[in-house]
Design a binder for these strands. Structure first.
Lengths: 217, 217
DNA sequence: CAGTATCCTTCCAGATACTG
DNA sequence: CAGTATCTGGAAGGATACTG
């Protein structure tokens, strides 16, 4: 006998949305899945503190709502979770919230954890596609992970792994430094001078990339 | 002896944002304030189920975070709450979430409540400023409240009350009908035929308005 | 690896009473 | 009117142990 899931009882887009993804941890699970399918234990590892029962509950509910689905890979018996089209539709909302949250962010509190993919989220949140230049790709090396930003016909996408074709710029940094830059609490120039940020590539590309990320006028 | 407010402990824009506005009711309070300053009892009345202590807690916390402030009107001793600039910064995130939630919304469940201002939020969520035409204003009469949409130099704003200058279109409907249209579960043409939606004004203006709201190609 | 099951703590809803 | 204070049952969250 399942009890009613608590909901706001309002016929309103926001309230209805929050009834689905407003509970604790849910949007962070979506954040993880926005950068690609994940296995159960990957989620558990990237969401320190969640507790396995809660993760299972959330995944089950999100599955019932049609926001995520389980993908069974035939090769191995390992299953993983991925966003459905509906779930992918949360990207804009997540980026908007992340952008706002970045603006409210200051220094990391002692004990705070960071992940390279959250820095990648920051990239996606702060970049302005309307300032994109001609087609090219950038490679971001954050801690031990690699991401690429590709500009293609005015469309900008951020993805995991190396750039498909040759990139015009390589940026190397650590997660904290990048999040700080995104939050505006660290000047990219200062980070470069202290060697916490290393940019390698064509000077013109550096200008185009910085402009797109809103780091210079 | 204050307990620690539960937080995610992640140095990430999204997690930091959720630490501030991720708790139950919080974003709905922000939603209310996005359409203008509100008094305590107004909030209480527009958020059925919240409970006075919880509302007080949330308002206090939002105040401490600098997301809202209390405005003391000298004329009367009545105080009201309004968003700070930081709080206003949540508009895009709220609209993005509302847009997504609208897409997931079906029919109102029995017992669901609706408010005209939530329908106004739906207007704001679905309208596409890039499809705005020349300067003009529209007046929306939803239940017993009036809102205006004004197009001014490509900028589109939705506000409470009547349009400042003459409007080229008047739309009359009820909250449920409008939210349904926004959710895509009711065809505006059908609503017009059944008289649940009445549009009055220049035919050209109707086309421009519908286009901006994404109700026609 | 991918979850259940269990136990305990904290938070929330709803009611009510009180204050300036 | 605009809150604060207190109480209570129930639901949600967190930690840990266990299982196919």
């Amino acid at each position: 006998m399942k009890h009613h899931r608590r909901n706001y009882g309002q016929y309103c887009g926001l309230a209805a949305g929050l009834d689905l993804i407003g509970e604790r941890w849910t949007l962070l699970i979506v954040r993880e899945l926005l950068s690609g399918p994940c296995r159960y234990n990957e989620l558990l590892a990237n969401l320190p503190g969640i507790g396995t029962n809660l993760l299972a509950d959330r995944l089950k509910f999100l599955g019932q709502c049609g926001i995520i689905r389980q993908r069974c890979r035939e090769s191995s018996k390992l299953r993983d979770y991925e966003l459905t089209e509906q779930g992918e539709g949360l990207r804009e909302a997540v980026l908007a919230l992340a952008r706002w949250g970045l603006g409210m962010l200051d220094q990391p509190a002692p004990g705070d954890i960071v992940r390279p993919r959250w820095a990648a989220l920051a990239i996606e949140a702060i970049l302005d596609p309307s300032r994109a230049g001609p087609d090219e790709q950038y490679e971001f090396r954050i801690d031990d992970e690699v991401f690429h930003v590709s500009v293609l016909g005015g469309q900008v996408t951020v993805g995991h792994g190396r750039a498909a074709i040759g990139h015009t710029l390589t940026l190397t940094t650590d997660s904290v430094t990048f999040v700080k830059i995104g939050a505006g609490s660290l000047n990219p120039l200062e980070a470069t001078l202290t060697n916490r940020l290393v940019i390698d590539g064509d000077e013109e590309a550096v200008v185009r990339c910085s402009r797109m990320l809103g780091l210079m006028a």
